[in-house]
């Protein structure tokens, strides 16, 4: 077990495994997302209240879930890097940030597009929308901090601290709709209990969620490889990895 973790923690091993896994995740993501979009747009029945407008859920909810999931991943990787001084963990955290920021932006933008016809406004300052916007700024802050510090090790440590502190925002976003009167409705999907959605609609949403997860895996592995190459001090394995193919 420990040797396995140690092996995975070594950049050459990670690079090799990431290279091998990326296409699998990539193709799975493509299949799931194409099927999910098709099903969500054309197979799922219309909603009794929102008619076809509800179909925005198929891009909004997966983006929003991913924005939180990626942040937790980033903070975990940063914490591992900080505690055990593993450079690879910092590389993974750094790879997460831009992807997470893009999905947070997507969640906000599609939510806004959805809110205009349904709620009657593009934006309100309720607890859910405000805390999700704070998440976007956390990602931006993390990336800005990394870019501002030249020394690799110091940038890793400072940004890791920011990522860990920002984790507090995650439960606030998740439970904001239960804790306060918000305009945003409570969660349709929750771990416990039956989802408040018809099974014919739900299946495509779950497919999109799985597709987005695979998509994140493929992109983060690619970005992490780039980060690992940037940090490679021992040139021998790089030569092997690049010319062995």
């Amino acid at each position: 077990m420990w040797t396995w973790i140690h092996k995975l923690g070594s950049p050459p091993h990670f690079y090799r495994i990431a290279t091998r896994l990326t296409p699998w995740f990539g193709w799975a993501a493509l299949l799931l997302i194409v099927a999910g979009i098709y099903g969500g747009l054309y197979v799922a029945p219309t909603d009794y209240q929102q008619l076809d407008g509800f179909r925005i859920i198929y891009v909004h909810v997966p983006s929003a879930s991913l924005s939180l999931f990626i942040y937790v991943n980033m903070a975990l990787a940063a914490a591992v890097g900080l505690v055990w001084r593993i450079k690879l963990a910092h590389a993974i955290a750094a790879a997460c940030a831009p992807i997470g920021a893009s999905f947070t932006f997507l969640a906000l933008a599609t939510g806004s597009i959805w809110a205009k016809p349904m709620w009657g406004t593009w934006w309100v300052w309720d607890a859910r929308l405000t805390s999700e916007l704070v998440l976007l700024f956390l990602y931006f802050g993390y990336m800005a901090l990394r870019a501002a510090i030249d020394d690799e090790n110091r940038a890793d440590r400072a940004s890791a601290l920011l990522a860990i502190i920002g984790v507090i925002n995650v439960p606030i976003i998740k439970y904001s709709v239960d804790w306060w009167n918000t305009l945003h409705q409570p969660a349709t999907l929750s771990k416990l209990g039956k989802p408040s959605m018809d099974p014919d609609m739900l299946i495509w949403l779950l497919m999109m969620l799985a597709g987005f997860m695979c998509f994140f895996a493929a992109v983060v592995l690619t970005r992490a490889r780039a980060e690992v190459l940037l940090r490679a001090r021992d040139q021998r394995w790089v030569r092997q990895a690049l010319e062995g193919r």
Partner: peptide
């Protein structure tokens, strides 16, 4: 001067409703 609609977390086809 502004009216916003709040909707719930339930989604279903009209027949089910």
């Amino acid at each position: 001067d502004e009216v916003l609609a709040k909707h719930d977390e339930n989604y279903m086809p009209p027949e089910v409703e």
